[in-house]
Design a protein around this nucleic acid. Structure first.
Lengths: 221, 221, 221, 221
DNA sequence: GATGAATGAGATTTCATTCAT
DNA sequence: TATGAATGAAATCTCATTCAT
């Protein structure tokens, strides 16, 4: 007894909110917003029913915080890759971005947020807009930059930028959603479970083949 | 005397189940399973609280019926296209299938079921498997046949069938999910709302470019 | 066609109310008042939901009618025995009354009414009083008469009349209640099910032994 | 610090289940199982609608608990009398047992359980069997032992054991049922209300007279 | 801060009763 | 008369939230 600097205690105390958000993320992604009970969140966070209310106003605020915190964390984690934007071909860069995204988002629970937000979009329009602007748009912009660079350099043929981004994004989004839905049900999407990253790369390769500038001799009549 | 005691009420009675399912589909897609109240469904169907229970055991059965009826109806509607499987190039066939799918599914509320099932997959595993087997797999098999045909005829280069299907499916799934989630929120996915079919065709075109067999002279070194 | 005296139809029509009451008696006795649904009664009576309301105001009136009709019918059926009140010893008369009661009430569904009324007594006080006055009291009075006769003739020793009636009634009431409750559950009251009348007679014999005037020599000091 | 966080609330919490069961017992006995609303129970226990669900899964479990707790408590309370099984005549012992039963069961709300179980027997067969085995059979066995002892010692003449038990039990059961049904309705069973124990004793006396071994000289022709 | 008993609004479901046919 | 679709009051049960300790 006596106040021994409270360091471990302090850490505990400071950690509470994120422990709660962490538990909430898992449960929201697994069961959906309404099917997740406050008490489940508390228990999963190792506290009791009343505790989450010491840190968050209510369930909805927890939901919002989960989305915000996760997005912020992940987008920050991915921004490290932006530093590498030199001296690499655009195709290769897209592959690197894909792997990076896979590591920090696609293969993590953060991917579940995409499914979650899709499910709750109309119930939480403000939050949805936030998610869209802070998660989806940045990812698209990043891809847009790279594609533009490839077109500028002649590596890619001219394409409609938005459509190209969509084409690149679709497999990622499909993977995020499927892996937190059908793929969790035995007997569904078994191929997806094998090696999602491989699928994503193949898909990217396929799309890039469609985007690539044909080699000069190919163009000859 | 001796008439079939039908007339106005009878007609109502026959129509009720589908009216209820119709209302339920819209609400489930819009708000999700749990956020949709039985009374909402009843009111949307123009009846009172108790009436849906005359036709369905409980909410879950309504949910299942919505999924089953919609899937069955749509898959049947799409099977008409199978008759056209002669004398058309595989690429062209894929475009026709896409348009057909768009007409009967992609642009309808049935598309919302995909989002719905993704959201509720783990809460209704049996139903999810049903949906997967009756909706997702048939669509994939159809695409698989066409691709295989294209490879057999030399129109497409050899590709990994599953990955190719994924690549073709991803934009469709993304469209279905986005158009019933983010796209409904003002300020999100505005490009999608403009002309989704155009995006889908562009996407298909892009993917096909990656799959097409290069012309013979191109292959020469 | 043409109106052929409507005899069978007429019979049917007149029979409806009693068919409904008959069905209701069975169900009320089996499941209790509240657990019996109007639709069950209708179905058991071979009609549809609305029909009982053509003959009875509501469920409560059906309940009351069931009790009244059954009591009236049974008490009438038992009144035939009153004619036999001459030239028979009181003990023997009690045995005859017991057998008569057993035939017309104890072994029939009417016995179930006793359980039913006990269960619902406080919920339907007026009806309970009716039942008490029309069923229980007459039976007690009948027994009272016989016992009194026995005491007057010296066949029975002097006893407190009410208590003697209670002692004679208790086994009957117990049989009625048990046979429509515990005895219906496998594993309970198996001995009762064997031969209830035999138990009743034995019980009566035992009680009569206690009531009988000892033979003169026994009384001598 | 470090105290057992109890005091007022804790005491409340420990008391709650039995307060709820207590309220439920009264209401179930008074109105029956179905006619007793959960909110009635809650209010009678001084809590609100939701509170009973903190301690019991549902209404049925409350019902079961009421039966179990009451039976267990009462049967334990009665087992104290078993210690007195020495040096007393069997007749006298039966009177003592009767008084004991009257004190701990017959005159208490526990007696109402008998009516309740009779009413609900077919709706809750398992519970009924439990009640039968834990309440009815032990009572019968106790009586059986005493009667057997009486026969062994020559105090009683040989009788059919089951029937003798029935004869002794019937007045008790009738009292329990009547006093929680007809006797509660003004104008019914007024004699019963006067002095039920007196009736029971008289009844027992009467039955014992039928069972007693006549004194030796009496048996002489 | 943390607990967890208690609350009470609200959701699902049932069923007696009505009434157009 | 008879039907049975529809109603809506009422009951059971859940769970987000509060607050005394």
């Amino acid at each position: 007894m006596g106040e021994t600097g409270s360091s471990r205690w302090q850490r505990k105390k400071d950690a509470r909110p994120s422990e709660i958000l962490d538990a909430a993320l898992t449960l929201f992604v697994e069961k959906g917003y309404l099917a997740t009970k406050m008490e489940d969140i508390a228990r999963a966070a190792g506290v009791t029913k009343g505790t989450p209310y010491l840190y968050f106003q209510n369930k909805e605020e927890i939901f919002k915080a989960v989305v915000r915190e996760t997005i912020v964390a992940r987008v920050h984690a991915m921004s490290a890759q932006l530093a590498q934007l030199h001296g690499i071909g655009s195709s290769e860069l897209l592959f690197l971005a894909l792997e990076d995204w896979w590591t920090h988002i696609g293969s993590t629970r953060a991917a579940g947020l995409c499914k979650l937000m899709a499910a709750e979009a109309t119930n939480f329009p403000d939050l949805t807009r936030f998610y869209y602007e802070e998660a989806i748009l940045p990812a698209r912009q990043l891809l847009g930059h790279i594609i533009q660079r490839g077109m500028d350099s002649g590596e890619f043929r001219p394409v409609h930028l938005d459509y190209a981004i969509d084409a690149l994004t679709a497999p990622m989004m499909m993977t995020m959603i499927l892996s937190h839905s059908f793929a969790l049900v035995p007997g569904c999407c078994d191929s997806l479970k094998d090696n999602p990253l491989e699928f994503l790369k193949t898909s990217l390769r396929l799309t890039l083949q469609g985007m690539h500038q044909p080699a000069p001799q190919d163009a000859r009549p």
